[in-house]
Amino acid sequence: MGLPPYATTGQRIWYYSFRVICALIFIFLITPILVVMPLSFNAQDFFTFTPEMLRLDPEGYSLKHYRNFFGNSDWQRALKNSLIIAPIATVISVSLGTLAAIGLSQSHVPGKRAIMAILISPMIVPLIISATGMFFFYSAMGNWLEDNLGLGQNFVGYIKVILAHAVLGIPFVIITVTATLVGFDRSLTRAAANMGADPVTTFFRVQMPLILPGVISGGLFAFITSFDEVVVVLFVGSAAQKTLPWQMFIGLREQISPTILAVATILVVISIGLLATVEILRRRSERLRGMSPG
């Protein structure tokens, strides 16, 4: 889409002004993130650029908000909780989700549409409604677990949050893995069976390596869903299960402290890493699919 040499002045003006408009929209998309990063190195407890920062004076910058994040027990406990809850929830949603996606990709599944609708529903229903429903049901379930199985209150709290996060991550796993399976060549499993491999071997040695990129990117989606989730954990969890987003939410609502910006920067770096991983996996998956016949 270049500008042809015969373009009129009006067309030239429009061509460049359109690019400027697009540039402004891209700036709109990216600025908030770009503003957060430098501000997190602020030497003052302000949420704005100090004159020292604008002069690029090293005095104006410091790592004190990062030190505060790593030194503060509240933030550390929140980080630990996030790192306990998100991986376990991810493992649950990935293992159950992958199995179900393989089942769904078979040719004759009765009631496929209805099943799909149910499995996707956690993504469609607004979080506040999921949280409300879970709040009622999980507290009853938690009481039952405590009374009948004699589990500790804290442990039950983790179970509740993990189950809730696992179910929220499931649609992402289902969608990505089914998408990968669309390009999967069924004759490969038949060939494996033909050569004497039992279904389990076929799954782990033939099918799994091929759909792995889809499974991993589904897992990353599930992980980020749990890692970033705040509404459900606010309603279902108790103070002992306070996660990183929860702690940030409290910080934003009550005692607003620049430590939040340091945490935000760390999270942005993590999401850049995840984004890069997903992108690499997608490319690899496309390459693999290109290689497989059919």
């Binding site: 179900a100 393989i102 599944v109 099943i115 149910i118 499995l119 409604i129 999921s130 429903g133 696992a166």
Partner: peptide, 28 residues
């Protein structure tokens, strides 16, 4: 048999979603 196998693969997740998500919403 094929249908049954597909359903058996889906069943654990379907039950999981029903119990942890659909029932709470119905309860609401």
């Amino acid at each position: 048999r094929q249908k049954l196998r597909a359903l058996l693969l889906i069943a654990p997740l379907l039950i999981f979603v029903l119990v942890t998500f659909v029932v709470p919403i119905a309860n609401m």
